[in-house]
């Protein structure tokens, strides 16, 4: 992929990120932080991509640790977010959130 394509993707992704988060109720700041936190666990894929080409024990060890870290980030992150949000789930009718519900 050409550098210019990658930079274009980078810029567009940044706008998507800005746009998506523009209005969030305070209540959801923590779960949202935790959810985005889980998404950057995608670095796990980076570990997968380089491990086959790595050589020597040190590199292998480093990458296994990186894959372990990435997995903790993803699985722990989504799981913890789900637990946090589960606290809100039992309220089927949230009376004061008309304005926020429409955003979706």
């Amino acid at each position: 992929m050409s550098t210019i394509t990658e930079i274009a993707i980078l810029v567009l992704a940044a706008f998507v990120g800005f746009e998506v988060i523009s209005k969030v109720p305070n209540t959801l700041h923590t779960p949202l932080m935790s959810g985005t936190n889980a998404i950057h666990g995608i670095v796990l894929l980076g570990g997968l991509l380089v491990i086959a080409d790595s050589s020597g024990v040190l590199e292998k060890v480093l990458l296994v640790v990186a894959i372990t870290f990435g997995t903790i980030n993803i699985i722990g992150g989504f799981f913890v977010t789900d637990r946090m949000l589960g606290m809100f789930k039992r309220k089927p009718d949230l009376p004061e959130d008309g304005q926020e519900g429409e955003g979706e």
Binding site: A13, A14, I21, L32, L45
Partner: peptide, 16 residues
């Protein structure tokens, strides 16, 4: 995948 997901988190994280 890394570029898009990472950048979305970078941007939304800054806003947050």
């Amino acid at each position: 995948a890394l570029i898009v997901a990472g950048m979305i988190v970078g941007a939304s994280g800054s806003i947050l």
